[in-house]
């Protein structure tokens, strides 16, 4: 049985935020809510700067699911963690529990008013009927039902963000890592796109490494 997973290849991510834009555009996500964002560490440090694209990781043992007082979360057979906005009371427990900061809230009013929680759905919609108007309004487009994968992963220009069947994704990443080799020279353009130890792939003029 396929289990849906995201994996971000930090060697390839160029912090273009294309995934963030693709997500917002695809689901018409409102202002103030970012289902996906790019996090950069060691910004500006040559050789040490890394970026990764982060959203809901659809955990196998999801802490949001464990703490929700109204039990609005559920996991599909594909391993996608979804929630029911009709049941959500906007308490924010899931936000405190999530190590990735995935749950987002559309409002910030008086008395802790937050509104219904919103998060990445792996482009799998919600509990409403597939591809229905109600589903789109609450959760965004259901690309999985259309035979497609999440827009962020498909739109990624460098294919740093991988999404899909966990087994296939793991094989793709393993192949990349094996090709790259190891050691201090493992960084930069040649590492991300070159043929690695076995072949030669000169970096384009002006590129680092």
């Amino acid at each position: 049985m396929a289990r849906m997973k995201f994996l971000c290849d930090a060697e390839r991510c160029i912090e273009c935020n294309g995934c963030v834009t693709a997500c917002k555009q695809e689901h018409e996500v409102p202002w103030g809510v970012n289902r996906r964002r790019v996090v950069t560490i060691n910004d500006g440090v040559i050789g040490a700067e890394k970026s990764i694209s982060v959203a809901c990781m659809h955990c196998s043992d999801a802490p949001c699911m464990a703490v929700c007082p109204v039990d609005c979360f559920y996991r599909t057979d594909d391993g996608v963690v979804l929630h029911d906005k009709d049941l959500c009371i906007g308490c924010g427990y899931c936000f405190y529990a999530c190590p990735f900061g995935a749950p987002q809230f559309p409002q910030a009013g008086a008395f802790g008013l937050r509104g219904k929680m919103d998060k990445c759905t792996f482009c799998a919609g919600g509990p409403e009927a597939d591809k229905s108007e109600a589903e789109f309004k609450k959760y965004g487009r259901n690309r999985l039902a259309e035979g497609k994968l999440p827009a962020c992963a498909e739109m990624c220009s460098t294919k740093a963000l991988l999404g899909g069947d966990g087994d296939v994704i793991a094989d793709i990443y393993r192949e990349r890592v094996t090709r790259r080799g190891k050691g201090s020279e493992v960084w930069g353009w040649g590492t991300a796109y070159g043929q690695g130890k076995g072949g030669s792939a000169p970096a384009p003029a002006g590129a680092k490494s």
């Binding site: 396929a2 409403e128 899909g164």
Partner: peptide, 23 residues
């Protein structure tokens, strides 16, 4: 709602094409 237990993923031609591009 019965949809909670349904499956959405299937390796369509579109998806296989995406996997190819990641390589």
């Amino acid at each position: 709602t019965g949809k909670r237990s349904t499956r959405g993923y299937s390796a369509s031609e579109h998806i296989n094409n995406y996997y190819r591009t990641t390589k």
